[in-house]
Nucleic acid binder design. Structure first.
Lengths: 352, 352
DNA sequence: ATGAAAGCGCTAACAG
DNA sequence: CTGTTAGCGCTTTCAT
């Protein structure tokens, strides 16, 4: 066919490399060389091949390619719940980094279910992903090791695993809690309560224990001020109301910002002024935190950075680097929910 | 090797179907039959094969499989920005539905960039995805048609495309705006302002025009009360402040909840009481909307449903069904930011 | 009920 | 610089 059909290709047109070779009057190998930029090819043949490719609207089959090369330049990221902006941010960081490294990143959201986590890990493997990053609170270590062992490389987020199993990226949770408590104490709060998440989340346990340890060390610990509840705003709303009837407190540290949002609302609807009567500190620093009223002070976790580092580590491992453990440090994000005596909140505070 | 090594497989172990066949003393074909449940196989051979599979910790290569079958039971979903909970929710709906249909769903987040959108669509194709769902405001229709034409089936979200190109799932945006305005008018608001998003988003244009039309019809339209701004809380915060100095208004309709959050904060920090002086209505109903202060009234878009329907439509198309157009209807979610004279907000309001 | 041969679309290892 | 021959691991025919 002469160049009649403009560039609008027919739907479903699936030219193969052999078609291109035929049209260009060369062998498949030459086409492959041109495509890969490997070996030397005469300027002339290259042009012919390139023209044929355009003409046929040809695209190499990645499937065939990865069958032949046993690699796919594809990475997988498995997260437990995209509806928590925390994971969405990690995903964005990872996506950006993968793109820069020349890899593709496929995300698997596994809606709160260990079975699905395993399934996602397996199907990513089946589809030929070179490596995976996984943030999974639920999968037991044995199962995780087995699943990850099938990849050339793997990175686990938010959880320490043996280096034989995978690299890991974690955040120093205890340090984050300490930052919050130091600021609270400095602001004169002596009866700090904690809204903890279920122990299912390793980081929740770590944070709760860090809280208890620190408060104990300061001689300010009272177990009656610790509540464990589900990580939803709804559950936190209810838990905070209950806490109000149980023990007096002048500050509240929450496992994450989603929970803090519920707590904030519970305090306000109970007539408790924030931060005058009770200061509130969240954890993670999701984008919405700065827009709550009052803006929520929180322990900022470098989410994008987590995603970025996870990809960097994974790519390094794929190139033969040894597994590593990365520990990231959180920062305190001071906003009005933690400040005292802020009469008229100023515009833009906490937006930096 | 006898059954020495318990069930803990060595890392990187990649048995092939031939290995299994050998160990079981049958042909590859028989193994394939057992795996697929096709053809008849004697109970005895099947057991042998199954045992060999277990022994070798064997998994079929999906890559080889899809090269041979030209199908992968894999679907792709391309979204522009996971950091907007709106998309995260769509993704969860889609993921759930795909899982139920026996498909795998790979998500591609393309960070605000038309080039990346195209790249994602292409790499999903390369990896053998059977079909894709794409929510892309930026890709011009011609390019989109070309990209989608290469799939067996495709679904576009939030945008109408010719049925030859793909099926589409859209929400009746104009109806949503009308719902908000009716409620506002019923509450006595006569000077409604609008915080619109850039025309880049088709739905933003639709909503803005619906707003103008409706207000005009009521004889209440004033162009000075319409502001177009970026879809971030920050930009909306600034735009709202500016609007306050420009034209008086007693209600504010926003393109989405993220923007509404910024607007809410701008009003509050400017000493404007919500909803007493200015009622605010968002759009989408992201989870956080209910936890803002005051809880944000919003036009609820059935996000999960969009994801679910997109997958259902896609799967149907893959089975040969004709392309279709689905229009979903939004609902008004009344919360305190729209109510009048609510002295003491009651607990749990707006949480249902 | 099972096996043998051919091929999916590509790359790798050698020729020339 | 370019072509030929083998596979990658699986599913299809077709035989048996």
């Amino acid at each position: 066919m002469p160049r009649g059909g403009v560039s609008t290709p027919k739907a479903g047109s699936k030219a193969t490399m052999a078609d291109v070779a035929r049209l260009a009057g060369v062998s498949k190998q030459t086409v492959s060389r041109v495509l890969n930029g490997t070996g030397r090819t005469s300027e002339k043949t290259r042009r012919r091949v390139e023209r044929a490719i355009r003409e046929l609207n040809y695209r190499r089959s990645g499937v065939a390619r990865s069958l032949a090369t046993n690699s796919s330049l594809t990475l997988g990221l498995v997260v437990p719940a995209l509806d928590n902006p925390y994971y969405a941010d990690i995903a964005q960081g990872a996506e950006l980094a993968a793109w820069e490294e020349g890899y593709n990143l496929f995300l698997c959201n596994v809606f709160q279910d260990a079975g699905r986590e395993a399934a996602a890990l397996r199907s990513l493997e089946d589809r030929g992903a070179d490596g995976v990053i996984v943030d999974t609170p639920r999968l037991p270590e044995g199962a995780l090791a087995e699943l990850l062992g099938r990849y050339k490389a793997a990175v686990v987020i938010g959880r320490e695993v043996p280096l034989e199993v995978a690299s890991s990226i974690v955040v120093d949770d205890a340090a984050g809690v300490r930052l919050a408590l130091e600021a609270l104490h400095a602001a004169g709060r002596r009866r700090v309560a904690m809204l903890a998440g279920p122990d299912l989340f390793a980081s929740s346990t770590v944070r709760r224990e860090a809280f208890e340890r620190y408060e104990q060390a300061c001689g300010l610990f009272d177990p009656a001020r610790v509540v464990i509840t589900d990580t939803s705003s709804e559950a936190s709303f209810a838990a905070t109301r209950e806490l109000l009837t149980r023990a007096p407190f002048d500050a509240l540290v929450c496992f994450n910002d989603i929970m803090a949002a519920g707590a904030l609302r519970a305090l306000q609807t109970s007539g408790v002024r924030v931060p005058e009567e009770v200061a509130v500190v969240g954890h993670d620093d999701i984008p919405m935190a700065a827009w709550l009223s009052p803006p929520l002070a929180t322990v900022r976790v470098p989410k994008r950075e987590i995603g970025r580092r996870a990809v960097a580590t994974l790519v390094a491992s794929l190139s033969g680097a040894a597994a590593t453990r990365v520990v990231l440090t959180p920062e305190l994000r001071v906003r009005e929910s933690l400040l005292q005596g802020v009469a008229a909140p100023r515009a833009g505070s906490g937006m930096g």
